[in-house]
């Protein structure tokens, strides 16, 4: 986790906002013009939703050091809450539903964050599994949550903001991109604020943090709340913009692990890391399927694909934990430094 503020003093110094602004300009100005609907539907939408969930989990696990295996539960809570607010509260704008859904997810996050006041590490991770199982069980058990739909699978409402319909692939992409950009910016501000410093202090040395007067209990619960808020909104994007349906099964333990892998592979305690990790997690199965089909032809059916995905992903995680514990972000920074160095010395 040492890659948070590495020393780049010998590099040409660009203001920190340049790269994100250029990326955003590209995402808003160029991608909608050149992107195919496959790119939006199969790659960019899940990428955005998972990135945001990764940002949320990174605040909790990467920065505040509290391991959680309940991310998918908070996504589910967000998605179902947004659906119900949208359904049951007349005249509530979509943005209002999404915000309130985040609040609901945050409240659930605080409740399931309470064990963190006594438990640490592995034990805490196991206790957050309770959130995972409880939320999924409650959403399946009480059909009120899915408006008494027989299958438990419900269509997401139409997306529109201020009367502008966003149901097309591009519209949904822009909708997701905007929410992710805003929340990521706020998350970045958070981790560089005093509260963010408190998160890291508690992660690195809880006793010392308590002695210098950081309110440890409050700060831990705050980390759970903020993290769950962001993950909840990511759940809304996942259900409303990407899948277009809301169902509990999509938010199972596998999803929780997927988000945890995203931040481990991408880089703990790094906002960029969530995006790196999500990109890998989304693109990797598609690339593997293309590659497998190309090399093995018909032998590479969906069963083999699924199995090989798991094997390769498992291997990747082990490799990252051993070789690059700071994740893709650290790898990227090192490569960039090498290239710059090589470029300067020519």
């Amino acid at each position: 986790m040492a890659a948070i503020t590495s020393d780049f003093s010998f590099m040409p110094v660009l203001p920190k906002w340049v790269v994100p602004v250029l990326l955003l300009a590209f995402a808003y100005g160029v991608v909608p013009l050149i992107g195919s609907s496959y790119l939006f539907e199969a790659i960019l939408l899940p990428f955005l939703a998972l990135s945001l969930a990764g940002v949320g989990l990174n605040i909790l696990t990467g920065y505040a050091g509290q391991v959680s295996l309940g991310s998918a539960a908070f996504m589910a809570a967000g998605a179902f809450a947004a659906y119900n607010f949208n359904l049951r509260v007349e005249g509530l704008p979509l943005i209002g539903s999404i915000f309130l859904a985040g609040i609901v997810a945050a409240a659930i996050g605080i409740v399931f964050g309470l064990p963190s006041l006594r438990l640490k590490g592995f034990y805490l991770a196991v206790s957050t599994l309770a959130a995972q199982f409880f939320v999924q069980w409650a959403l399946t058990k009480f059909s009120w949550f899915s408006n008494d739909s027989a299958s438990g699978v419900i269509d997401a409402p139409r997306l529109s903001i201020a009367g502008v319909a966003l149901d097309s692939a591009i519209g949904r992409y822009l909708f997701a991109l905007t929410i992710v950009a805003i929340l990521t910016f706020l998350a970045y501000r958070l981790v560089s604020s005093q509260t963010g410093r408190n998160f890291i202090a508690i992660r690195d040395n809880e006793t010392a943090a308590r002695i210098i007067g950081i309110p440890v209990l409050k700060t831990k619960l705050l980390a759970f709340a903020i993290s769950s808020f962001i993950i909840g909104v990511a759940g809304v994007i996942w259900a409303f913009a990407y899948l277009r349906t809301v169902e509990p099964d999509g938010f199972d333990l596998d999803r929780s692990f997927q988000i945890l892998f995203i931040i481990i592979i991408g880089g703990l305690a790094s906002i960029r890391g969530a995006f790196f990790g999500a990109a890998l997690i989304v693109v990797f199965p598609l690339a593997l399927s293309r590659l497998g089909g190309f090399l093995l032809g018909d032998l590479f059916d969906s069963g083999v694909l699924d199995m090989s995905q798991r094997i390769v992903l498992g291997a990747l995680i082990i490799l990252f934990l051993i070789l690059e514990p700071d994740g893709l972000v650290a790898l990227w920074d090192r490569i960039r430094r090498r290239l710059l160095f090589a470029w300067q010395s020519t």
């Binding site: 948070i4 958070l190 005093q194 410093r197 408190n198 690195d204 950081i214 705050l222 305690a269």
Partner: peptide, 27 residues
């Protein structure tokens, strides 16, 4: 010390007990 923080941030954390603004204000 807090290994993930810079020297300045480590020292600044010694004043965390005085902070009265909430996270929303800081963000």
């Amino acid at each position: 010390l807090f290994k993930g923080l810079s020297v300045l941030d480590n020292v600044a954390s010694g004043l965390a007990y005085k902070v009265r603004s909430n996270f929303a204000g800081q963000v």
